[in-house]
Amino acid sequence: SPLDQFEIVPLIPMHIGNFYFSFTNSSLFMLLTLSFFLLLIHFVTKKGGGNLVPNAWQSLVELLYDFVLNLVKEQIGGLSGNVKQMFFPCILVTFLFLLFCNLQGMIPYSFTVTSHFLITLALSFSIFIGITIVGFQRHGLHFFSFLLPAGVPLPLAPFLVLLELISYCFRALSLGIRLFANMMAGHSLVKILSGFAWTMLCMNDIFYFIGALGPLFIVLALTGLELGVAILQAYVFTILICIYLNDAINLH
């Protein structure tokens, strides 16, 4: 079945009472991805930030850093530079985590951590709660004016407040579900098509053998597409966080 690849298997079973926190294959691949990136960061910045003239790996890390920094600078408006950079580490870490987990999922026979909605929803909901707290911290109870756009006739106000409240709360859900669905759909599709090609190859028939080239090329193209989607979804997640943060700070 194409959904078998998302199966979570406990590698080291652990539980206290009813709490099962076994070390699973999901955790193993998360650990591998993050330790790979931490090693990269460590080797790049080992002597107080690395070389003045960067090599390829250092330019890669600096590229990622600059990319997220520009994102934060451009998307969050109305604040001085120092206050903006208060949010930068959190956004950078989220982006790096998602980017590398998505990319690692494209390695054959590995496990895609972000294809489980618990992971993406946990991330998006924690960030959503954090953004709401930032909004209340900045504006106090005035933050509720976020729910009522300016210049609305008074009889419409109750309905609009309800609508805005629902749309505000569904932001978190849509943020998590978007990433999860993209990852899961892409991986299932690649798995289905490659299974199709494999079955045709095993038919011991020359026509099927030639026909199997079709799905094979589609799988090849889809792999490229999935790599693009992996990068794009991490970017979309990050830019949406920035936009929501901007909304919470500047109250549209």
Partner: peptide, 10 residues
């Protein structure tokens, strides 16, 4: 069954 484990390790 996997929810708590995933959340914990995440």
């Amino acid at each position: 069954f996997t929810y708590f484990s995933q959340f914990f390790w995440l």
